[in-house]
C-alpha cells in the first residue's frame, strides 16, 4: 500500500502543479502541454482507483482529441502572447471569487449531505475478479443497452455527413491533376509547327 500512497501523492502533486502552470505559463502552447500532463496524471489516479476504463477514455478523448485540437487552434491562431499575459492580475479578483464559491459549495455538499444512499443491485460487478471494468461495461453496452449504442452511432453518422456536406466544396473550375491525360500525351499532338510571318503574332 505504501507504493500506492506514494504514487497517489506523486500523481496528485504533479497534477495540481501542472494545473497551476496551465493558468500561469506565458506561452499558450506551454499551457496546452501542461494541460496534457495534467490529464495524464489524472488518468494515473484513475488507474490507482481501479477504474482503468475511465483512465483509457481520459487519455484517448482528452489527450488524443481535445488537447491536440486545442494545440492546433493555439498554434494556428496568431495571438499576441504579451497582451494575454499582462492582464492576469486584473482577472485575479474574479477568479478568486469563483474559486471561493466553488470551494464553499464543495464544503456544503461534504458536510451537509445526509441523503441516504440507495443500494444498487450490482449483480454483474459482484465478483470483481471475474470481470474488468471494460469487460463489465462491454457486457451491458452491447447487450442490454444496444439500442442506445446504435442510436449514438447514428447520431455520429449524421453529424459526420453534416460536417462533410457543409464544408466540402466541389468547384468545377478548379484545376486538378489528370494523370490519364498526362500519360497519354505524346509529341505528335503536343508540338505544333507554325509559320509566323515577321512582324505579326500568333
Amino acid at each position: 500500500m505504501l507504493i500506492m500512497s506514494i504514487l497517489f501523492y506523486l500523481f496528485s502533486f504533479i497534477m495540481i502543479g501542472s494545473a497551476f502552470m496551465v493558468v500561469l505559463s506565458r506561452n499558450p502552447v506551454h499551457s496546452v502541454l501542461f494541460l496534457i500532463l495534467c490529464f495524464f496524471n489524472s488518468a494515473g489516479i484513475f488507474l490507482i482507483l481501479g477504474a482503468e476504463f475511465l483512465a483509457f477514455i481520459l487519455v484517448i478523448v482528452y489527450v488524443g482529441a481535445v488537447a491536440v485540437l486545442f494545440l492546433f487552434v493555439v498554434m494556428m491562431l496568431d495571438v499576441e502572447f504579451k497582451s494575454l499575459t499582462s492582464s492576469i492580475i486584473s482577472y485575479l479578483p474574479v477568479g478568486m471569487t469563483i474559486g471561493f464559491i466553488i470551494l464553499s459549495e464543495l464544503m456544503l455538499v461534504l458536510f451537509t449531505w445526509k441523503r441516504e444512499y440507495v443500494k444498487i443491485d450490482l449483480d454483474i460487478m459482484e465478483d470483481q475478479n471475474l470481470y474488468t471494468n471494460t469487460e463489465a461495461l462491454g457486457l451491458v453496452l452491447y447487450t442490454d443497452n444496444i439500442l442506445y449504442f446504435q442510436l449514438a452511432g447514428l447520431i455520429l453518422l449524421a453529424s459526420m455527413i453534416g460536417a462533410i456536406v457543409l464544408t466540402v466544396n466541389h468547384r468545377p473550375s478548379a484545376k486538378r491533376q489528370s494523370i490519364e491525360s498526362q500519360v497519354n500525351r505524346d509529341s505528335k499532338n503536343s508540338i505544333e509547327n507554325i509559320n509566323i510571318k515577321p512582324g505579326s503574332g500568333i
Binding site: L151, I155, A158, S159, I161, G162, L166
Partner: peptide, 8 residues
Amino acid sequence: LQSLPLYV
C-alpha cells in the same frame, strides 16, 4: 438524432 440533421 432528429435535430442534428435539421441543423445541417
